[in-house]
């Protein structure tokens, strides 16, 4: 019975890693952002290691935003979205699966790349581990929140910029707690687990609110 879910997941994942997919572009963009920052603020390694976790988080946020506009747009362009809507499956679950596949395709590579980019920013091992863990827990929230923006702008020709504007305010809490948890691991003003658990809670809230709102928006956009 859950077979169609698996099929949809595999299809989306394959599309995102194949030629024309956006999985690797996100990681490259992440690398480009992190590379360009020392040119902006200077190559001071102490400074970089202090603000490194924040930089990695902002880079991951931007890279996620960059890939989001393709989440539903390609399916809408070739009519797949209409077929999915007509198939009668619960649209919320469909959105959740698509987000999951999108996250595995674009979010997970960012998490994997984070330790290597951490070396460029002179992060110590504890900070590297913390930033990787928080990205792992937090990037699903970014994708799921972003799905709302993606479905709202799916009918627009150039929705990418608008999507970023709509999503960034909603992503503020995720960013705050992601960076706070990393800071907590390095300099411990508070225990690491407090902000980290709130971050996990934000991801879970996004896993509920994101698909529901996004499915509603897709339904309204199609009729």
């Amino acid at each position: 019975m859950r077979n169609w879910a698996l099929v949809l997941f595999q299809r989306d994942l394959q599309l995102s890693v194949r030629i024309g997919g956006s999985a690797l572009v996100g990681v490259l963009f992440f690398l480009a952002v992190v590379t360009v920052i020392p040119f902006g603020i200077g190559p001071d390694l102490n400074l970089l290691s202090r603000i490194g976790p924040g930089l990695l988080w902002i880079g991951a946020l931007l890279a996620t935003l960059l890939g989001l506009d393709r989440l539903f747009q390609a399916d809408r362009d070739d009519g797949t979205l209409d077929l999915i809507l007509m198939a009668g499956r619960p649209l919320e679950v469909v959105v959740l699966i698509k987000c999951l596949a999108h996250w595995v395709g674009t979010g997970l590579p960012l998490v994997v790349a984070a330790p290597f980019l951490g070396i460029l920013l002179n992060l110590d091992p504890v900070a590297t581990a913390a930033v990787t863990a928080t990205l792992f827990a937090g990037t699903p929230a970014l994708t799921l929140i972003g799905a709302i923006g993606a479905s709202l702008t799916v009918t627009l020709r150039r929705g990418g910029l608008l999507l970023a504007i709509l999503v960034i305010p909603l992503a503020v809490p995720t960013l705050i707690f992601g960076v706070s948890a990393t800071d907590a691991a390095v300099r411990d003003p508070v225990p690491f687990m407090t902000p980290f658990l709130i971050l996990c809670a934000l991801s879970l809230i996004a896993a509920v609110v994101g698909p529901i709102a996004s499915a509603a928006a897709l339904r309204f956009a199609s009729d």
């Binding site: 709302i148 909603l170 809230i205 609110v209 709102a213």
Partner: peptide, 16 residues
Amino acid sequence: VLTLVGALNLPIIKFS
């Protein structure tokens, strides 16, 4: 839809 999502998010944003 966006307004309602924002309304759900505003307390979280304020808190964070």
